[in-house]
């Protein structure tokens, strides 16, 4: 039997080509987003411990480290959203005899939807918290 041919690849293969670097940057958005999810979990945990613990967590969010994490997570979430939606028309192909939607239209629909949902969530949170504080 022949020995199997193994294609050698250097560990820094992705550094040489701008497209590969962008790919790795896209994959790396997962890291700050994972840490951010842990931060959300910590807020939920403090909530289970009572009001005082939750309010302390709320104050902790003002710390420069957590603001930096938020900034990093925001950049990662934006880069993720743009690259993710750019890939949607490659996966969601609507091309049948009865219904045909161009890839550009699929992408645009997702872009509009994402902008509306993200802005809507922020607006909803601001309005609800203001209404709650008004009571």
């Amino acid at each position: 039997m022949h020995k199997p041919y193994i294609q050698r690849q250097r560990a820094d293969w992705w550094l040489r080509n701008p497209a590969y670097r962008r790919y790795m940057l896209r994959e790396a958005t997962a890291l700050p987003l994972f840490l951010y999810t842990l931060l959300l979990m910590s807020g939920l945990f403090q909530f289970t411990r009572g009001e005082a613990a939750f309010l302390q967590w709320l104050e902790m969010l003002r710390s420069p480290w957590l603001l930096a994490l938020h900034g990093l997570a925001l950049a990662a979430a934006l880069f993720h959203a743009v690259t993710w939606i750019a890939l949607v028309p490659k996966i969601l192909v609507i091309d049948t005899d009865r219904l045909r939607v161009s890839p550009a239209a699929v992408k645009l629909a997702h872009q509009v939807g994402a902008v509306v949902c993200n802005a809507g969530l922020l607006l909803l949170a601001v309005l609800l918290l203001r209404a709650a504080a008004g009571n």
Binding site: L39, L58, L61, L78, A81, C117
Partner: peptide, 25 residues
């Protein structure tokens, strides 16, 4: 994450200031 990630991150980033008037509320 694409549809609500940035909005959610911005909301929690601003949360201490949004809640400053009345944290209990």
């Amino acid at each position: 994450l694409a549809f609500i990630g940035p909005g959610l991150v911005l909301t929690t980033a601003l949360l201490p200031w949004l809640a400053a008037d009345d944290p209990q509320a």
